Simulated assay, not measured.
Amino acid sequence: MTGSNQVPYLLRAARGEVLDRPPVWMMRQAGRYMKAYRDLRDKYPSFRERSEIPEVAIEVSLQPWRAFQPDGVILFSDIVTPLPGMGIDMDIAEGKGPIIADPIRTQAQVDALRPLEPEESLPFIKPILQTLRQEVGNQSTVLGFVGAPWTLAAYAVEGKGSKDYSIIKNMAFSDPTVLHQFLSKIADSIATYVRYQIDCGAQVVQLFDSWAGQLSPKDYDTFALPYQQQVVRQVRETHPDTPLILLVSGSAGVLERMGKSGVDIVTVDWSVDMADARKRLGPDMKVQGNLDPGVLFGSKAFIRDRILDTIQKAGNRGHILNLGHGVLPNTPEENVAYFFETAKQADQLLATCA
Rank of each mutant, 00 (worst) to 15 (best):
E55G: 01
R32D: 10
S162C: 12
W270V: 14
E117Q: 13
L291D: 10
E119H: 13
S46E: 15
P118L: 07
G298L: 07
F339E: 06
V24W: 07
G159H: 07
P329E: 12
S51K: 00
V266N: 02
V56L: 04
I167W: 05
S77C: 15
S77K: 01
Y220V: 07
F340W: 00
G289F: 10
D273R: 08
Y9V: 09
I128P: 02
F68W: 12
Q234S: 12
L152S: 11
S184K: 10
A148K: 03
Y33I: 01
L291F: 09
G326T: 02
A156I: 15
P226V: 09
N290Y: 03
L19P: 09
F173A: 10
S140W: 08
D91C: 00
P293C: 06
L11Q: 12
G161S: 11
Q134T: 15
D78E: 10
V18F: 00
T192G: 07
D292V: 13
M34V: 08
R41Q: 13
F124M: 11
Y155E: 11
L296P: 00
K43M: 13
R21P: 04
G250Y: 00
V254K: 00
L143G: 03
D111E: 15
H325L: 04
V268Q: 03
G31K: 04
N330S: 13
V287D: 03
L62W: 11
V266R: 02
V248D: 00
Q181D: 15
D20Y: 06
D284E: 13
P118E: 04
E55V: 06
P98V: 14
A108D: 11
F297E: 04
Q63R: 03
V18M: 07
V157H: 11
I198M: 04
P54M: 12
Q234I: 07
V204A: 13
Q109W: 10
E135C: 10
G315W: 05
A191K: 09
L62P: 12
V142S: 03
T238W: 04
D221N: 10
I265T: 08
E237S: 07
A337S: 08
V205H: 09
L291N: 12
Q139A: 10
N322E: 13
K96T: 15
Y37K: 08
V287G: 00
S61N: 03
N330A: 13
F76H: 07
G159T: 05
S166A: 10
V263T: 05
I104H: 00
G85D: 07
S249I: 07
K218F: 05
R278I: 08
N170Y: 15
M26V: 15
E49C: 05
N290D: 09
M34Q: 13
T242W: 01
E120H: 15
M285Q: 13
R21W: 06
M26E: 12
D20L: 14
D241L: 07
